[in-house]
């Protein structure tokens, strides 16, 4: 364990299974592949993550969740970070690897409407 890195939430790590594959095929879940090392300690380059899109009627986000969000400054770019703090529906997102992460320290608080979904499964490469 590298000092300063967040402890990975073990329950998110899964082995590939038919049910997940089925939920991806029918669109119940979305999937993305990780690029970069700002979430090192939990996610590494090439890992596959799945997430469920946020339900606007039931926003279930809490500190510690890993989320997929639209980059606030670059169109069509998705970022993956952990919720560090929540201030009135604005989110302080941080990379687990704080020494190598562009996050709310530079990008500012992220608006709720930029948050696309919450990561619910991680498939390590």
């Amino acid at each position: 364990m590298i000092a300063g890195l967040q402890q990975a939430n073990k329950s998110l790590f899964q082995k590939p299974d038919l049910l997940t594959l089925f939920t991806l095929i029918i669109g119940y879940r979305q999937h993305l592949r990780v690029v970069g090392n700002s979430m090192e300690g939990t996610l590494k380059e090439g890992d596959l993550i799945t997430y469920k899109k946020l339900n606007p009627k039931n926003i279930d986000l809490k500190i510690g969740d890993i989320v997929v969000a639209s980059h606030p400054k670059i169109k069509n770019k998705l970022i993956i970070k952990r919720i560090n703090m929540i201030y009135q529906n604005k989110f302080d997102l941080r990379g687990d690897n704080s020494m190598s992460s562009t996050d709310s320290r530079e990008l500012g608080l992220i608006e709720l409407d930029l948050i696309i979904g919450k990561v619910d499964k991680i498939f390590s490469k």
Binding site: R33, M39, I79
Partner: peptide
């Protein structure tokens, strides 16, 4: 699709 765990220094 890719999701970016930004790796450029803050």
């Amino acid at each position: 699709k890719s999701v970016h765990a930004h790796c450029d220094g803050p």
